[in-house]
Design a protein around this nucleic acid. Structure first.
Length: 287
DNA sequence: AATACCATCAACCGCCGCGGC
DNA sequence: AGCCGCGGCGGTTGATGGTAT
């Protein structure tokens, strides 16, 4: 037997969240910021486990979440990214800032999987090159790292921009009656505080440490980008609407064109393969 | 109108990685 | 080095609403 589930603890409630619970959670996060989820149930009195609180916040209450139908552009992005990254929903969702990983995963499972299956049934499926799949793994990991570093940088930079603005007044006395409106209510709070800073303190210490983090992140991004020019081309290609699902050859072309640096660990294999092919051709000619 | 079936999505569960001790 | 707890992730479940019969 493994560790018992967190909801097995005495009195822990499970199931759908009520608007009242949402308000309690949002109020707490307004005051303390997201994070330290372990403390949330005890500090708020919510009969929910820390995991449940975090999930509710990240998937539903967090400001900036877009709900409702996915656009065609988003759909294509998900399909392309899923083809490249596999079921790494968090990584895929990082390309769709307004969508949560849970949303992307649900949308994939309920809509896209079915859609693709129908499409595949309707067309003669081209067998994917095994080599290109393996080859893609290294690029996937590196690209995900770059995306995450970029996001971190953007967040750090936006924090600095936000911090320099005069803070707007927070509305803490009025709450929406429905859970759906709560995240909208938080917009004002979001603008006046940081996503990375626990509270809207605005202290010099906080600002300095944020700037330091920004510099570190920037260095990290520059270093990664220097190694991964092909992946940046990949990013623009991914976002290109003209791209069709399963274009492994296009992917490989983009990864190799105009790139003199040997950053591809699989390059040697390719060269060996090419040599083998040339030798084979020579032998054929001799025959 | 009643029932069965299907689709959707919020929430749960278990596992894993990481950091602190 | 090993253990423990926390946070994050992906797979899965189950409640609910919609549609077909």
């Amino acid at each position: 037997m493994g560790r018992p589930p967190c909801h097995d603890k005495d009195g822990m409630k499970k199931g759908p969240w009520t608007p009242e619970e949402d308000i309690i959670l949002v109020s707490y996060i307004q005051e303390h910021g997201p994070g330290n989820w372990k403390a949330v149930p005890t500090k708020t009195g919510l009969m929910r486990c820390s995991k449940s609180c975090r999930l509710r916040w990240t998937n539903y209450l967090r400001p900036g979440i877009k709900r409702g139908n996915f656009t065609e552009q988003e759909e294509k992005q998900i399909i392309n990214l899923q083809a490249l990254l596999g079921n790494r929903w968090a990584a895929i969702a990082s390309y769709l800032p307004e969508r949560t990983d849970n949303d992307v995963k649900n949308y994939w499972n309920t809509h896209l999987k079915k859609k693709l299956r129908m499409l595949e049934a309707g067309t003669t499926s081209r067998p994917a090159s095994h080599r290109s799949v393996i080859k893609g793994q290294w690029e996937r990991c590196l690209q995900t790292d770059i995306a995450m570093a970029k996001r971190a940088l953007r967040e750090a930079l936006s924090y600095n921009t936000i911090a320099s603005r005069p803070s707007s007044s927070m509305t803490t006395t009025t709450y929406a009656s429905s859970a759906e409106n709560i995240s909208r209510l938080l917009d004002g709070w979001k603008r006046s505080s940081s996503t990375t800073s626990p509270v809207n303190t605005g202290t010099i210490t906080t600002t300095i440490s944020q700037e330091s983090a920004t510099t570190t992140t920037l260095n990290c991004v520059m270093s990664l980008e220097a190694q991964a020019a092909p992946l940046l081309r990949l990013e623009s290609w991914l976002l290109d609407e003209s791209f069709g699902h399963g274009d492994e050859e296009n992917f490989l072309e983009i990864m190799t064109v105009d790139d003199d640096r040997d950053v591809d660990p699989y390059k040697e294999d390719d060269e060996e393969e090419q040599e083998d092919e040339e030798q084979q051709e020579e032998m054929d000619d001799e025959d």
